[in-house]
Each structure stands twice: as C-alpha cells, then as structure tokens.
Design a protein around this nucleic acid. Structure first.
Lengths: 155, 155
DNA sequence: GTTGAAACGTATCTACC
DNA sequence: GGTAGATACGTTTCAAC
C-alpha cells in the first residue's frame, strides 16, 4: 500500500478514531464540519487504503491480573541469518511477547513482555532462552507505566 | 477497580474483542455458544468493570509516513522526586512518545518514540533533552518490527 | 462537496421463563 | 443461563443538487 496524502480532515478523523472507534459517523462528521455521507466515504477510503488497519478493544492489564511489564534487551552471539530468523520466530510465538524489535546499537533485540507476576516471568524466561544461544540478556522490570498509547503522532 | 475472576467464556470474548472489536454481539455469541442477550450482558459487565477500557482504531504507521521507531533508554543524574516528576511530565507530553516506563535495572527510563524519519527524531530529541539534565541517553533505532500487538496474553 | 430519506441491520433493554 | 419482542440507533446507499 503506497503512501497517500491526507488532508486536514482525514487527519482529524484519524485522530478521533485512534482515541475512540465507537464514535458514530454522524458524531465524527459533526466534529469535522461535514455531513455523514462524505465523512463515511472518507472513513471507507481510509480503511481500503489500509491506513486504518484494524479496530480493537484495549484491556486494562491490572484488571485481569497482568501486573508486570518487562523490557528484555538481547545481544546475540550468532549473527547468521538462519539463526536470527529461527530466534525471531521462536520469541514472537509467545503470547507474552507483545512487542519485538530488531535494533541498531548496543543491543540486537528488544522485547516487551507482559506477565502476571515475577514467577510467571521466570517460567517465560526459561522457555525463551531454552532453545537458543544468546550472548547477553538484560531484563528490566517496569516499576511504573508513565505512558502507553496506541495513537500514532499524526502531525 | 478490583480484580475480577473471569470464566472461560469471558476470556474467549475478550480474546476476540482484542483482535477485532467490530464483531457484532450475535457473531461473538455464536462463537462462544451463547445467545445474544447473555453475551451482550457479559460485554456490558466487562466494560463496567473497566476490563475493556476502550475501543480504538489502529493505524498502519508506514501508510501515514511514520517509518521510524526509536527505543530511548535513559539514565538520570538527578534522583529527586520533584525532578523525576517534572521530567516524566515533560517527556510524556510529546505525541511522539507512545510508551514510557520507569524501569528497574541499569536504565531508569525507557521511551518508545515514533517519528517519520531520522531528521524528525533529531528535532524531537533536541526538544526532549533541552529542558532537563540527563546523565546518559542511548537511542536505538528499530531496524525491523518483528511483532506488535495490543492483545494482552489472557491465559 | 451538500441534503434528505429510505432500507436495513444491530444494539439495547424489557419482560418473562 | 434462556427466548421473544419493541424500540431506538447506526450504518449504508441512493437520488438530486
């Protein structure tokens, strides 16, 4: 999907939907000073262009007993592409791994892991490193979540 | 909001809504072998209990020109609580900062930053560090996003 | 872009089993 | 947990401007 230029109205619509996708078309239309029909067409287009990729429910982790966020930084000892692929597939397969990036810089990978508690993390961690040979792993526990948003910064 | 026990059906509903919140109540009901009314009541309850906190649209960053994810790890030189609060407030105020944690371990803070490109990051970075005194900052650029999900691991 | 309206489906809520 | 049903609301589409 190629990059598409968005006008001011598109951006305003996206900002709203990023905060709350239960807003009705007529409500959104009103806020951007349009009527429902053109507003509805814009939203359809944004979905077809895959700019809006999905609509999801966000859960409060604390309210379902998921209290621990862990940032795992990894240095690999093996830099063969087949090994890397296998590792990536292995790590990504865990539900507990909610984010996973290959990085430039000192560390090769960063994982964000969500688990109920420390002992669950221990279980997860053992499974993560069981199959693979990793040079260095640093797990940092989140003492406080200062900010978390799924809303992308639209200028 | 206190922790509530969820039965198998609640969990199944949450898993679905974490993937796609446009599913109709009747569709969800069918999949969990319920009729619409009790299923609807469960969803209402999950919202009232703030287990479902919000419903949002997720955008494809690449399709709106946001191609760069940066992981910023920070060590602070000042550990006074007033300073920390001020710094946290300052950093969290940027739209580009989509996640922000205070950590245990070597680094004090981790920020996840999303920007269009390197030069935008540079602008952001200068603004971030302009006002505050930080001992050490390490910015790692995401070469590859291997996994990103908003779905929490419900067991 | 706009208005207005029709057609349709779904959500919501009630009453009752 | 279940059914049935009434209402209200949102979406979706169309015609005409």
């Amino acid at each position: 999907m190629k990059n598409t230029s968005l006008d001011k109205t598109d951006k305003a619509i996206l900002k709203m939907l990023q905060q709350d996708c239960t807003l009705s078309v007529s409500e959104i239309a009103e806020r951007v000073a349009l009527t429902t029909t053109p507003c509805w067409k814009r939203i359809q287009r944004l979905e077809q262009q895959n700019i809006i990729s999905k609509r999801v429910a966000l859960l409060k982790p604390q309210n379902i007993g998921l209290d621990l966020v862990v940032v795992v930084m990894i240095k690999t000892s093996n830099h063969e592409s087949t090994w890397l692929e296998k590792f990536a597939e292995h790590a990504a397969s865990f539900d507990e791994v909610v984010e996973f990036y290959r990085l430039s810089g000192i560390y090769d990978y960063m994982l964000k892991v969500i688990v109920p508690d420390m002992s669950s993390f221990d279980v997860f961690y053992k499974k993560l490193v069981a199959k693979v040979n990793i040079a260095e792993v640093t797990s940092s526990f989140a003492m406080e979540q200062i900010k978390y948003t799924t809303a992308l910064p639209i200028k």
